[in-house]
Amino acid sequence: MAAPATTTGTTAHGGAAPAHGGSFPPFQGDTFASQLLWLAITFGFLYWLSAKVIVPRLGTILEDRANKIGNDLDEAAAMKAKAEEAGQAYEKSLAEARAKSQAIAQETRETVNADSAARRKTVEADLAAKLADAEAKIVATKTEAMSHVEAIAADAAGAIVSHLTGTAPAPADTAKAVKTALGG
């Protein structure tokens, strides 16, 4: 509010000193028409220029830039998503491959195990058969030997009896006696 007060003061001062060009220039009414005419021409042209050229053009420039930046950001986001997708696909295929290799290893192990188990079974069966065979043979031999024992004992008993008594007993009697003695 100091400025208008100052001006009024200066205005009065200017008006009181009409030595240079009459009254105070801003209040010389005969210049108003000319000033208003040129103001109308220049400001009118400026307004036309602003409304038709400057404001639409700058608005377009700024809008285009905002759109371009927005599009670029969207594109970058899409690319990032794509890269992430590719990363996930890679991880997935890697996991798949790992699972597959593990499955193959497992399968191989199982086949090998089954194979060796089968082989072991045949070998064992073979061995068991051989063992049984041998055992049977032993039993047969033992039985045979045992059957000879009786005859030998009868012979020996006969010989002993003939030595002691001087008469040879009937072989049938010795055999019978031996059999009884042996608990047969």
């Binding site: 005969d30 028409a33 005419l37 040129w38 220049t42 400001f43 042209f45």
Partner: peptide
Amino acid sequence: SEIAFTNSALFMVAAV
């Protein structure tokens, strides 16, 4: 009123 191209008009044109 005199209608003229004045110093004021010159600076209005210059500003535009």
